[in-house]
Design a protein around this nucleic acid. Sequence first.
DNA 1: TTTACTGCAAAATTTTTGCAGGGGT
DNA 2: ACCCCTGCAAAAATTTTGCAGTAAA
Lengths: 173, 173
Amino acid sequence: MSSAAPSAEPRNKTRESLKHHGVRLTRQRQILLDLIDNSGEHLDAERLFQLAKEKDPKLNRVTVYRTLKMLKESGLVDELDLMHQAGDQHFYETRLKQEHAHIICLRCGRVEEFFGEPLQKLRRQVESHFGFQIMLARTEIGGYCAHCQALRAQEMRDAAEQPALPPVRRKQL
Amino acid sequence: MSSAAPSAEPRNKTRESLKHHGVRLTRQRQILLDLIDNSGEHLDAERLFQLAKEKDPKLNRVTVYRTLKMLKESGLVDELDLMHQAGDQHFYETRLKQEHAHIICLRCGRVEEFFGEPLQKLRRQVESHFGFQIMLARTEIGGYCAHCQALRAQEMRDAAEQPALPPVRRKQL
DNA sequence: TTTACTGCAAAATTTTTGCAGGGGT
DNA sequence: ACCCCTGCAAAAATTTTGCAGTAAA
């Protein structure tokens, strides 16, 4: 058992899982899988498309959507909304990590991940309470990170000092 | 204090909150608020529009979107995705209820609500761990309800008996 | 060689925006 | 009377579908 190649492992795991489902590993899919597994950030379809195009300019946006749908249905990626902080797109991440909650700062947009035991406890309680068979779970928490709490307090103070500012027509400035 | 009119209470609470924000209570908004507070189900924008149109045929779809956005930003409603079980729409519910998780059956689409203490525990842990100020939280759990687990097992058995069924062209049947 | 997969074009779905007129407070 | 809010039309953003050709196994 090798424990020295943590970044190559997941990719193989994913690829084997796909083969088992009788899915072809095309060049396009390899590019997209690499990006989702290794980008380190939460990508939406459009951003994924832009990044993929850098590696293969012919790769089509439709292929991105089709691949994401397939990965989602195979249970290989999770689809997130991140509280719609950045808009109504969906974001994607591998399911190879342990289950975690996403903590989204509504001011700076930063996303933290939380792996505490309440998550497992919640699972267990829901399973026993409803006799439910859980396939996937998702927790998203929106609020203000330690850093932005201070900034926000300052912003509120500033706003209070010049209260009757007429609504700014930003488009026309 | 009256404890006999549970359905009228929340509406007033919502309306007062809106007044505080300097928001006008138009006929359209009253219709939409009533539907969201009292429908008992999770409505998406389109369904909300259809229901609202029954009460006022002139009410426009755009008004529904604008009202939902306003209510969301005022913190009066929560926006849910219900695991995208039914598609990519968003669903809405009042924030007058206690925080709860949504348990969605991926087969029959039924949505249950769970109010256990792990949710509060999760909140507290996230707040202390990250020094985070939580404004809103959302937990969605997808899987199979007790009823559908049995049905699904039967479906799997059935599928195993006639394995090579060619992909059905549903549109042409 | 088979047929799952891709790209392209076109459509469908969901949501936003500009503007003129109407209604709440 | 003020100006926030609505309806309408049009656009933008996001996702899906049909079909002919391409490439993985």
